[in-house]
Simulated assay, not measured.
Amino acid sequence: MIATKIKALLALTGKDHSGLAGYLGISKQALSNKFYRDSFSAADLIKISEFTGAPLCFALDNGTKVVLELDKEDTV
Rank of each mutant, 00 (worst) to 15 (best):
A21I: 00
I46W: 01
F58A: 12
F40D: 14
A30H: 11
V66A: 02
L12A: 15
L24S: 03
L24K: 02
I2D: 04
G19K: 06
F40N: 13
E73Y: 04
H17M: 10
I6C: 03
K5M: 10
E73T: 06
D61G: 04
L12V: 11
K72W: 08
T64K: 10
E69G: 04
M1W: 03
S27C: 11
F40M: 14
P55H: 13
I2N: 03
L10E: 05
A11H: 02
L70E: 15
F58Y: 11
F51S: 08
D16K: 06
S27A: 12
M1V: 08
K28S: 14
S18N: 13
K7N: 13
K28C: 10
T75R: 15
L45Q: 02
F35K: 01
K34Y: 09
D61I: 05
L31Q: 07
Y36E: 06
K65W: 04
S39V: 00
D44W: 01
S27D: 10
L24F: 00
K7P: 06
G19M: 04
L70Y: 07
K28Y: 10
D16A: 02
R37A: 07
T13E: 08
A8I: 12
G63D: 01
I6N: 02
A30I: 06
F51W: 05
C57T: 05
